[in-house]
């Protein structure tokens, strides 16, 4: 069993930070720490002297970590971005998943790999969750619009709810448009006329 790694996660969201920790625990008996804040980030990182730093690529504070790649950085051991130390595919996978990693010089690739694989998988899950949330929100919005459109038709043309929906659907199909778009057009027009 190789000696444990010190891994630092820079993540302001507590729930996300815990989720990342959970995924890393499975890869070995590591020292895992989390930094949330922007304040004095470079110095705090230096004090912890980590082997690997993981940071969300959407985090503006990433540029602060970038300072650690300089020879004059406050860190004792120079850090490189993972990109230079490994084949392109894993770096690409990491950036696409939304995580960037900074690794100290001299750390062997086979020690980094499992940590990166776990982090990449976890960040993919985050982005899936984000997409799902956005899709759910959109569906909810669309349902509200369709309900309003149905209501307008029911009043204006004295239709039942099912008939109103059937009419919207038929119009959408004949025009090659989405049901939500037809409903939106109807709601907008009704707002303008009212």
């Amino acid at each position: 069993m190789p000696s444990q790694l010190t891994i630092l996660i820079v993540e302001p969201d507590k729930t996300r930070a815990e989720a990342i920790i959970d995924s890393l625990v499975a890869t070995g008996d590591h020292h895992i720490k989390v930094l949330a804040g922007h304040t004095g980030l470079a110095r705090s990182v230096a004090e912890m002297n980590p082997d690997i730093v993981l940071v969300d690529i959407a985090n503006p504070s990433r540029d602060v970590i970038e300072e650690l790649t300089l020879a004059s950085s406050p860190l004792e051991r120079p850090v490189a971005m993972f990109v230079d130390r490994s084949d392109d595919s894993i770096t690409k996978a990491a950036i696409e998943a939304g995580v960037s990693a900074y690794v100290v010089d001299g750390l062997r690739a086979d020690r980094i790999q499992p940590v990166m694989d776990a982090a990449i998988a976890r960040f993919h899950m985050f982005s899936r969750m984000r997409s799902e949330l956005a899709a759910t929100r959109r569906a909810l919005e669309e349902r509200k619009i369709i309900d309003r459109a149905k209501g307008i038709l029911m009043r204006a043309r004295n239709l039942s709810e099912d008939e109103a929906y059937a009419l919207i659907r038929k119009t959408a199909m004949s025009q090659g448009r989405k049901i939500a778009d037809v409903a939106q057009a109807l709601v907008t027009a009704a707002d303008l006329l009212s």
């Binding site: 690529i57 959407a58 985090n59 504070s61 990433r62 540029d63 971005m81 990109v83 950036i95 960037s100």
Partner: peptide, 10 residues
């Protein structure tokens, strides 16, 4: 972009 380093990586 959220940061210069991310812009560079992209």
């Amino acid at each position: 972009g959220p940061s210069w380093s991310t812009l560079r990586d992209r």
